[in-house]
Design a protein around this nucleic acid. Structure first.
Lengths: 338, 338
DNA sequence: CTGAAAGCGCTAACAG
DNA sequence: CTGTTAGCGCTTTCAG
């Protein structure tokens, strides 16, 4: 056994005086093979701890049972929940996932795409990095005919399956909820302008004012990133304004948490001095005190849906796969912070 | 181009009137090849978007640049932080990770081990499932000569590299801290007895009483799992006791959070009626109110250290690799709950 | 029902 | 400096 105890089909064939093709067929339960031979081979394989070499199979079949997943971060609640959903679905389908994180960096995203490509993953599930400049690396996957599904942070300009929520509507409703609660000066901690989720949420926020005939104050829109540090920074910027708002709508829960921490370090009280609202329903928002009102985003389902759509495309036999965009529903969760 | 636009060495060789071996060597910057040929080949490869097929390389070289990672859960703070550390280190070394989760299930752990094995991962990084009965599947990896590193949830009976904290000492100090704070009846929400981290933490807890000449009350040890639901259940069991304790030491932060939620639903107040202490320093423990005292466990470092040790073993050229056990240090973080 | 042979993409002796 | 050849482990025609 040259390869450190790894039993191959060849070994079995030799020991059993059969050809490799017969062994291969017996193992895959091919109808041509007699039951006697099958039994013999399978038993021998089990006894000798034979396991097919997925690498060799992949090379031969020109396809792997691996799915490439790229997320900006692993540690964030939203993404780790989505990963959970992806893993559950792909596991059930006999696939394994290669997980890469872009760390919100364009360069790392490009390099990881290449690495996953080199590993001939059967398909990609991607949530785009905050700093992603172009989408050429994703377009080239489509050009190569590799199935690709985006979730949450999607690319509009690429024809692919997508899983998202209605960010516009969710932000609109969130803002309207605050307005109805009586808040008049509502600030928005927005995300980067190059990201669709940021833009949509910002637009929803903006339009809620219009519909309710309230003047929209540009100065109350603080632009930044999507993570906790960004929420801290945004609140600091807010404090430099001549007049503080009476509510904040954060583009994500991490941003809300960042703001939460800073607010608690100021003399302001939530919700009396300033209300706070997040976006995602991370576990933490229900546990802090006061608990934070937020928009529940079905992270696990977004992941599992993306995985299901990808598998569908991978298994699709026809010539032209019709891409869909699944829009999952959100839910406003009212808590103590508003 | 038969394989959907994928350029191979063969294609380049044909178009450039060279042999495949020359192209292969030129691409890998082999000294035998003339600079002129190298330049020609490399340029052509770039222009035509050539990327080496990692599957074919792996088959040929009998090794992949993939590392198999198995965790009980992805979503938990501790594991997602550890995954982050693993991903950063392996990415820097040019490896990609295949991530599987066992869902705390023995069967799934075994199946995943097989799947990763089939994919010929260069090595394994594992944190064992709560319900893992035997470690045969891991032993068989060692038998096959595949590098394996355990972190946090280790297997004592397997000779492999390990990354852990001194669970005994950490629990001992945590308990002693509570004792010194004046708490007399300290309950322990312990983990499953088959897990080393549970046993060690339990032993540390127990011995702290002995050293301080305090009687240890078996009834105050509630055994359960390691997750949030388990903390909830444990607290319910605790309430059935004739006399409530004045403090709880939870085996993990999720268990502490579960208890936290239940306590808040009872009439008891933290820390006046009952103190609460966790284990890991999950982000959430600092944000809830009252914030929870806990033992900081360096999750990211445990992951990155495990990855470094694994890479070391993978790259080791000698005949006998000396396994180490790295014990990372913990830190007691005092907060409002005690 | 079974076997021989070719080939997936790549690398590495071995020859020139 | 470059080419020929064989082979990694597996599947799959094609031929008996």
């Amino acid at each position: 056994m040259i390869n450190k105890g790894r039993v191959t089909i060849k070994d079995i064939a030799r020991d059993l005086n059969l050809s490799t093709s017969t062994v291969s067929r017996a193992l895959r339960n091919h109808p041509d093979i007699s039951d006697a031979t099958k039994k013999l081979v399978v038993q021998y394989a089990n006894e000798n701890d034979y396991h097919p070499d997925a690498i060799a199979q992949s090379l031969k079949n020109m396809r792997t049972n691996t799915i490439g997943v790229m997320v900006p971060e692993i540690k964030h609640d939203f993404f780790s929940a989505a990963l959970n959903g992806i893993e559950d679905v792909t596991y059930a389908a006999g696939f394994t996932i290669m997980v890469c994180k872009s760390n919100e960096s364009y360069e790392r995203e490009v390099l990881n795409t290449r690495a996953l490509l080199s590993n001939r993953v059967a398909g990609f599930i991607v949530s785009i990095a905050q700093n992603s400049i172009t989408h050429d690396h994703f377009q080239s996957l489509k050009d190569k005919g590799i199935p690709l599904v985006f979730f949450d942070r999607i690319a509009e300009d690429i024809e692919a399956s997508k899983v998202m929520i209605d960010d516009y509507e969710a932000a609109f409703k969130a803002t309207e909820y605050l307005i109805n609660k009586g808040y008049k000066k509502i600030a928005h901690f927005a995300g980067p302008d190059n990201m669709i989720i940021s833009r949509e949420r910002h637009n929803g926020y903006k339009d809620a004012f219009e519909k309710n005939n309230i003047k929209y104050d540009k100065n109350y829109v603080i632009r930044g990133g999507l993570n906790e540090e960004d929420g801290m920074i945004a609140f600091q910027k807010l404090q430099e304004l001549p007049k503080m708002p009476d509510a904040i709508l954060a583009v994500t829960d991490p941003v809300a948490i960042g703001a939460f921490v800073q607010i608690n370090q100021s003399k302001l009280k939530i919700p009396d001095d300033i209300a706070l609202m997040g976006f995602s329903n991370n576990a933490i928002t229900s546990l802090v005190s006061p608990s934070i009102t937020t928009v529940a985003q079905p992270a696990y389902e977004m992941g599992s849906t993306a995985a299901k759509m990808l598998l569908e495309e991978i298994h699709y036999k026809g010539s032209y796969f019709q891409h869909r965009t699944e829009v999952l529903s959100t839910q406003l969760i009212e808590r103590e912070s508003t």
